Simulated scan of single mutants.
Amino acid sequence: MRSISDKQGLTLKAATRRSVDMAGGGDALQHVTRVKAGNLSKYGSANEENEEKFMPIDVAVESDLEAGAPIILTAMAEILGYQVTPLAHASAADVKPITERDALRIAREAADVVNAMVRAIEDGTVDSAEEREITREIDELKVALVDVMRRAKVRT
Rank of each mutant, 00 (worst) to 15 (best):
G124M: 11
R108A: 11
V61N: 05
A67C: 10
Y82D: 09
A144T: 04
I79H: 10
L29S: 01
D127A: 10
I121A: 11
V35L: 00
I71D: 03
K42P: 02
V32F: 03
T85Q: 12
A14M: 11
K13C: 02
K153M: 12
I57A: 15
T16P: 08
A77F: 08
R119H: 10
H89M: 05
A77D: 05
G26I: 02
E137Q: 15
D6T: 14
D27E: 15
S91V: 05
T156V: 14
E49D: 13
I98K: 04
S5I: 10
A60P: 01
E100W: 10
V126T: 10
V143S: 07
N115I: 04
I72W: 05
V114A: 13
I71M: 02
I71S: 00
A111Y: 06
V35S: 01
M76W: 12
N115T: 15
I121S: 04
P56W: 10
I134R: 01
T11A: 14
A107N: 06
A28N: 13
S63W: 05
S3N: 09
L65S: 01
I138R: 10
A110M: 09
P70M: 12
A28T: 15
D102T: 06
V61G: 03
D147S: 14
L12N: 05
I106P: 07
L10W: 00
I4N: 06
D64E: 06
G9L: 12
V35P: 01
D64Y: 07
I134E: 05
L141G: 00
K7R: 12
D102Q: 09
V59L: 00
A152N: 04
D112F: 02
A60W: 00
K142I: 13
T135W: 04
I57H: 09
L87Y: 07
V59D: 03
A23N: 09
V32L: 03
D27Q: 10
R150K: 15
E100M: 13
V114C: 05
K153H: 06
K42N: 12
A88R: 13
L40I: 01
D64R: 00
E130N: 04
R150E: 10
S91F: 02
A107H: 09
G9D: 01
D127G: 12
A23L: 07
G24P: 10
Q83Y: 09
T125W: 08
V154W: 01
E51H: 11
E48Q: 14
A107D: 08
L104V: 11
E66K: 15
V143I: 13
L141W: 03
I71A: 03
D147A: 11
K42S: 11
A107Y: 07
H31A: 09
